[in-house]
Simulated assay, not measured.
Amino acid sequence: MILTLARAAMATRFELVLDGDDERFLRAVGEAALDEVTLWEGRLTRYRRDSLVAHLERHGHARAIELDDETFELFDVCDDVRIASGGAFDVAHRSGGGLSVDRAERSVRLERPGVELDLGAIGKGFAIDRAIAVLREEGIERALLHGGTSTVLALGSPPGEEGWGVRVLAGGGARTIRLDGRALSVSAQHGRRADAAEGHLRDPRRGRPAADLGPIAVRAPNATAADAWSTALVVDPGAEQAARSMGIELFALDRGEPSESAT
């Protein structure tokens, strides 16, 4: 049987599809997974004074802040993608950079007062990964979870199928991308201001909106990487080779064809 659950979080709608035989068990485990999304929303938002991000912004310039393993994993990925993309992705882009990650001490530090952190381009993916981890721990073998229809992670495959089919709309057409234990994220430079042709994605290296080169989708081993790299590659398509070296597949949706990095 198929069971669908939903939760409003991170200013969007998360939807979880579960496939199994025991509805009560599926519902209980599914709600626990969505609780994980809510938990990370509270930690990663910059709009609550009691959040981790708010704490880092207040105190991270004065001393290094040691993180628990799960949270450090997130900031470690942020730093990896920042470096690999040549700065096209940077969670400190609001203030021109300024986040340092210490892998030996498993801590982060802000390089100066006033550094602002924005995990909007990776937070949904990370929350999805943590929620799917809850499902795995409970023995769930087949599930699909998306956040705002822009980032999705598949667990297993529906019976008789070679992965979950995710339909992506772009350029007046549509295509289906198959997922089996992998994630997909779609990004585009959509304008959000009526008085200018600016979009919501900014190039951290230049402090101005990224060029609008059309939407892209990336398929990755996990939702955290998919979320981050979909943003990085909209900002700088030239980072594709670096993305490919990290197991990322890029689909140029405006052309309706996978790039050379797709397999």
Score class of each variant (00 low, 15 high):
Leu253Lys: 11
His146Asp: 09
Gly247Glu: 11
Leu26Trp: 08
Glu23Gln: 14
Thr231His: 06
Phe251Cys: 05
Pro158Val: 02
His93Tyr: 15
Ser261Leu: 04
Val152Arg: 11
Pro258Trp: 11
Phe126Ile: 12
Arg206Cys: 02
His190Phe: 06
Leu16Arg: 07
Leu26Cys: 06
Glu41Trp: 08
Val234Phe: 09
Ser150Gly: 13
Leu110Glu: 11
His61Gly: 04
Cys78Phe: 03
Arg103Asn: 10
Glu116His: 12
Val168Pro: 05
Arg24Tyr: 04
Gly42Tyr: 05
Met1Arg: 09
Arg142Ile: 15
Ala6His: 13
Trp40Asp: 00
Ala54Tyr: 05
Cys78Trp: 01
Ala226Val: 09
Asp254His: 15
Arg175Phe: 01
Glu31Met: 03
Ala133Asp: 15
Ser85Glu: 03
Asp50Ala: 11
Pro158Cys: 03
Ile122Val: 15
Gly114Asn: 14
Asp118Glu: 15
Phe72Trp: 05
Arg244Glu: 14
Thr4Trp: 01
Leu26Val: 04
Val166Asp: 02
Leu18Ala: 03
Arg142Glu: 06
Ala170Gly: 10
His190Gly: 01
Asp80His: 08
Gly125Tyr: 14
Ile65Pro: 00
Ala54Val: 00
Lys124His: 12
Leu233Thr: 06
Gly120Glu: 14
Gln189Asp: 01
Ala104Arg: 04
Ser95His: 02
Leu74Lys: 04
Thr149Lys: 14
Glu66Pro: 06
His200Gly: 02
Gly114Leu: 13
Arg208Thr: 08
Arg112Lys: 15
Val37His: 03
Ala211Trp: 04
Leu44Ala: 10
Leu145Cys: 10
Arg43Gln: 12
Ile83Cys: 02
Glu137Met: 05
Asp129Glu: 15
Gln189Thr: 01
Asp212Ser: 13
Ala11Leu: 08
Glu70Tyr: 04
His146Pro: 07
Arg205Ser: 03
Val218Ser: 06
Leu153Ala: 11
Ile216Thr: 10
Ser230Gln: 10
Val77Gly: 01
Ser261Trp: 09
Arg46Asp: 14
